[in-house]
Design a binder for these strands. Structure first.
Lengths: 269, 269
DNA sequence: GAGTGGTCTAGACCACTGT
DNA sequence: CAGTGGTCTAGACCACTCC
């Protein structure tokens, strides 16, 4: 304990550097804990602290019986919401041939339709106070709750976790909207809503962050203790009614969201 | 080790519940580690793991010689960037009386001008590749680098950490812009740029998240191991030139950013 | 069942805070 | 100097993976 920085931090730093220098490549196994202990590098507790911090940083992944291995880094995915939302709305007016297999998920990931799987589960829940307030309906109003996640076949990790809500009475005007087996709906939410006479006028995004829950980190394939981005998306109709609300959980390390804000020109120039 | 969930997790959960139930109030000291050890609740390592996880969750703060205490929760601050940017630009045209003491920081925090301190430090740096590419200038071009942070007097924590860049040659057209002692500039960046004949036409925000560095967590007063929001703000002039770029670090637990995206109406309805 | 990470203990010693 | 958290050790035993 001669130095100011803890020993476990120094050990972690050493391996972090080696990983960055590609001395260990993705998939490679780092020395076993017991091995480093017997080499006299430190006690098991100390080595474990070092390895754990590398895991939180997202550099390695540990599994019982499978060692501590260098993690594959996924690329960041940029979501340009200005473009995305406008494009998504315009799509709804296109013929079905074009709508089918051209969802925003495909846009996001740059993958073809066949390369994206959609998992959906629908149920009906009474609105709690927060939800009721958002929609301007009495608490307890029945809501259609749609849970989604998308994935690439063969890869178990989710691209995002989505909880979407609609007023059940409104959605049920087209019974097809209540059927989860019809997801993904060709043309997305805008087209779905157009079938019940609703046009979306504006979307409000509220963005925040927090540490992932254990469930989220496993499902999204991100390190335990790493952050997620929370996106609360509220869609307002041309009648100024809130018609849809989505709570989206995005993997922090793989997500970037971009907005372009146009400004009014100064007069006379 | 009878149960599936680790003992340290259970201990942490117990105290987390007590804190939520306000059995311990903000500022209260939790039982000392040694005390819980002598009560036979677990070994020192186990108790420490429990307390550390409470710290990462942001429920408590620990300090050598000062015990483990329940943390005061700061309120979330909502930044409505659509409104904010438009308002900030409009302000630049107002008379100085109005501009002075009406910055966006005051808007964000809801505090009066006297209640916000601005700390600024300026220097000149050559553009690295990323910066050069953003501005469309050759790498090595001299840039004015302005570092800011704002705080409430008496409270050492920063509201945000800002690194702002301008092309030095452009900024130097008004020598006042190079003088950090003139910060905060009444009317903000838009007014500053207007003095050198620049009008900002649009702003692009790129949002991402990661865990705070040690320095950031200390400076922003957030738990070690908690996330920050990174906001990369690019201002484009009416001449379609990138004129300013800011890298903003925001405390994750206290920040929410909101955008409203208007959509084009469908024809004929 | 061998390999490998995860939890836990008991106790020594370090480092910072405040009287 | 007393109080209190932080680091470290050596070793026991648990739980999961893969052969």
């Amino acid at each position: 304990m001669a130095s100011r920085t803890p020993k476990w931090r120094e050990i972690a730093e050493t391996f972090a550097q080696k990983i960055r220098d590609r001395e260990y490549l993705p998939g490679d196994q780092l020395p076993q804990i017991r091995e480093l202990v017997s080499q006299g590098l430190g006690s098991k507790t100390t080595i474990m602290a070092a390895y754990r911090s590398l895991e939180t940083e997202g550099l390695v992944v540990t599994a019982r019986g499978h060692g501590t291995r260098v993690r594959r880094q996924y690329p960041r995915q940029v979501r340009r919401h200005q473009t995305r939302y406008g494009w998504e709305k315009a799509l709804a007016l296109k013929p079905e041939v074009e709508r089918r297999g051209n969802g925003v998920v495909e846009q996001d990931t740059g993958l073809a339709h066949e390369q994206v799987e959609c998992h959906a589960e629908f149920n009906t829940v009474p609105a709690d106070d927060r939800l009721a307030q958002r929609f301007g309906v009495p608490p307890g109003t029945l809501m259609l709750h749609r849970q989604y996640w998308h994935s690439v076949p063969g890869d178990p990790i989710a691209l995002s976790l989505i909880d979407s809500y609609l007023v059940h009475e409104v959605a049920s005007r087209n019974p097809d909207l209540l059927d989860s087996s019809l997801e993904p709906w060709p043309g997305g939410t805008h087209h779905q809503l157009s079938t019940i006479g609703i046009e979306i006028d504006q979307i409000q995004d509220d963005i925040s962050t927090r540490l992932a829950t254990l469930h989220e980190s496993q499902h999204l394939g991100i390190p335990n203790g790493s952050p997620v981005i929370l996106l609360d998306k509220t869609s307002v109709s041309t009648d100024a009614e809130v018609v849809e609300f989505s709570h989206v959980v995005l993997p922090g390390e793989r997500t970037e969201i971009s907005y372009t804000v146009p400004l009014e020109r100064w007069p006379g120039r």
